[in-house]
Design a protein around this nucleic acid. Structure first.
Lengths: 240, 240
DNA sequence: CCGTATTTGTCCGTATGTATG
DNA sequence: ACATACATACGGACAAATACG
């Protein structure tokens, strides 16, 4: 199969090739086709997408700012390889934002919003019963997005979304076992209960604990600490 | 025109022109030389920095991802003009992260770290007494960076830094009056006291309240409520 | 409403730097 | 250590779309 080139969408023309290329490369990275640490060959990417190197380079700059790739001069760009420590940092930011959003919701949530959250929990419960990991995954994604959207706001949603993408550079999709789904969804229910009860402190605690438990599960399941971290394509904010 | 062209750093060559251009344009925006809503002329920027359009375009893609500019096809890029509602969102994210960092610090702060924070408070106190707003400003910046760095971590620092930059698109530098400095620094002291006492809840509350108070001060001082909120990117340019 | 000028979007060519035999 | 091959970095040119008179 010769590359689902961008020419297929050429009819639209409502967006620049750089933006389309950016999304295409982003997909290649999050889907794992471009693995962590791998080199991004501009010419190859341009050929694959059927465009020239200009838009490719522009797209890579965006990904660079987004933290998906790192660039070294005269050597090119590489898919960012984040360390366990960096992953921990990302998780902590999510913990902070989720906890705050839950606390905020406990004070300001409407009955409609709570109903939406409860419906999502039901949907995930059904997915878990059906062993449908994919459906649970999307439901979980929407649940957390709703949580942030209701409480924090759109910007917080975007930040969490980007953090999730970066985390996918470390863990290849959070594989959830049936038991894991059940436990995770029980935590979701805890969160919504606290929110519905208007218990600010408990809502925050439940929200934080949920993410933190996911972090713990993830860090416990990681084969090796992978202390090599920085390598040569380390973050430019390198320290120590 | 002074034109602090990039040629001065041409000797180093340790970084790409795109990254240097990005920082240069970023400075132009943050410093207010390029005002909100203003159009970014690629050719003019290239001429000003003494380079070609290629690196300029790449730099703009980075700023776009960073939220400093918005781009519309076949029309170019504009300095992002954020609404009061969006500014409120940004503030809330900072509230969440600062509160979490303070709570974290209350549990894990070392005596050395607390000493550093206290020294910064002293420095700001001196700056306030001397009516040195600039020194207070930098001290304040470092204080908050330290707060995040100790607790949340480097990534949280970066996020808060970027949020602060975006906020500068709305408010032209948070002008702090002498009384404002004094009140603000008193809140700093409250935060550090709670951290030193190991009081998690109070530390979080103090951290959140500090940012929230800054937000309130800012929103109270804003000339117009601008209730439109304009969604997403809003109207790029004030044109009829 | 139309023609012109300006600017963006894209592609290609060249030079420089790095990796490698 | 030297030479070769290759990829990146940058500049410049062309076409299309938009803005303006």
């Amino acid at each position: 199969m010769i590359a689902p080139a961008l020419e297929a969408l050429d009819i639209l023309r409502t967006r620049t090739l750089a933006s389309l290329a950016g999304e295409a490369i982003e997909r290649l990275i999050v889907d794992g086709e471009l693995k962590a640490g791998e080199h991004l060959n501009e010419l190859a990417l341009a050929a694959r997408l059927g465009i020239s190197r200009g838009p490719i380079r522009e797209a890579i700059r965006g990904l660079e700012r987004g933290g998906l790739v790192v660039t070294v001069v005269n050597q090119g760009s590489f898919v960012r390889k984040i360390s366990a420590g960096e992953a921990h940092e990302l998780y902590e930011v999510r913990i902070a934002l989720t906890g705050y959003a839950c606390a905020h919701l406990a004070q300001h949530a409407t009955t409609d919003q709570i109903k939406i959250l409860r419906d999502l929990i039901k949907r995930m419960s059904a997915a878990q019963a059906a062993r449908d990991a994919a459906d649970y995954y999307t439901g979980n994604l929407e649940f957390h997005a709703r949580l942030m959207d209701f409480g924090g706001n759109r910007r917080a949603v975007r930040i969490c979304d980007e953090l999730g993408q970066e985390l996918n550079l470390f863990r290849r999709r959070s594989l959830v076992s049936p038991e894991g789904m059940k436990a995770s969804n029980a935590e979701h229910a805890d969160i919504v209960r606290a929110i519905a009860a208007g218990d600010v402190a408990r809502a925050r605690e439940a929200g934080e604990a949920h993410i933190r438990r996911g972090m713990d599960r993830f860090e416990a399941s990681t084969p090796r600490p992978e202390t090599d971290a920085a390598h040569k394509n380390g973050d430019r904010t390198a320290k120590g």
